[in-house]
Amino acid sequence: MNPDSPRDDFYRHYAPMPKSYRRFLLVLIPILFLGILAIAAFLPNIHSQLNTGKIQGRQTFEGLLVAEPVPHIIVPRPGNTENGDGFSRYVLSAGNKAGVSQKVLDLAGQWVSMKGLVVSRNQYSMVVGPTAEAIATPEGVTIVNPTDSTDNTSPSEPEPTEAIASPEDVESDSTDATSPSDDSEPAEAIETPKSITIDPTAGISLGEFELEGEILDGKCYPGVMKPGRGKVHRACAIRCISGGIPAVFIVQNDRGESLYFLLEDTEGKAVNDRVLPLVGDRIKISGEVMQYDDMLVVKADPDTYARM
């Protein structure tokens, strides 16, 4: 071999680069960049990081605050609802990985004006980090079994004059006109119901079911986390649920649609601390499915939940 031939070129990083190395790198580096471009453009397509979970913006609700089985607010739906479900129920949580504040919980059983961030995924919605103040129960609203010691049975003072706010009529910073739940109508359709009775404990039993699905926290799954489910999300969901955020059982029906069930034990209490080892896993729950307005709840002893 001729010592001066390109094959005898020798590379030292502190000396001028031999031509043969330069030519090689002029081909190699663009190929590496093209590879990087291809991988960066390809990988986001095969990650499950897109779903319909959305942060809908801060909104105001007026309704009955309920503490059990999980903290939620019952909001009368606007318009003529005599022939259908008259109420929407929105589950509550704090802004961090914790249950809704004690300050809000102290108002359980009362009619409140509540303002919070709405996150929703399909038909499930949650109000995050709400502030609330007790207001007079609207005229014509009768509350039975308010679930705390306060007796709010109407008729109350005829003070309130405002219509009950629908979720989307105030301060929504979302550009999407979709309301947190499918039932909401534009603000102008709102009417104060003439005479309604609210019983937070009045549910309809849909029967005994054996359901297969996954327990997740009710906030991250519809909100900021994507995919917000499965093993990568498990630790977060455990923190959220142990912190007091309601656990949600997600079940896919035969048509691939997601159904969302809240969980209560046989005493009607939240199950949070008793389901932590099962969070994020495929499990089977057998129990009575209760429908409270638009909220589905599985009533079962958490000790009978079984990992699949």
């Binding site: 471009l37 960066a40 397509n45 990650h47 990081q49 897109l50 779903n51 979970g53 959305k54 999407d176």
Partner: peptide, 23 residues
């Protein structure tokens, strides 16, 4: 920098197509 920028941009674009804000 190109990789990270592209990954985030492509993800945001895919989200926009589904009317989902970038996360």
């Amino acid at each position: 920098a190109l990789y990270v920028y592209l990954f985030i941009t492509v993800s945001a674009k895919l989200g926009a197509e589904m009317n989902i804000p970038p996360v």
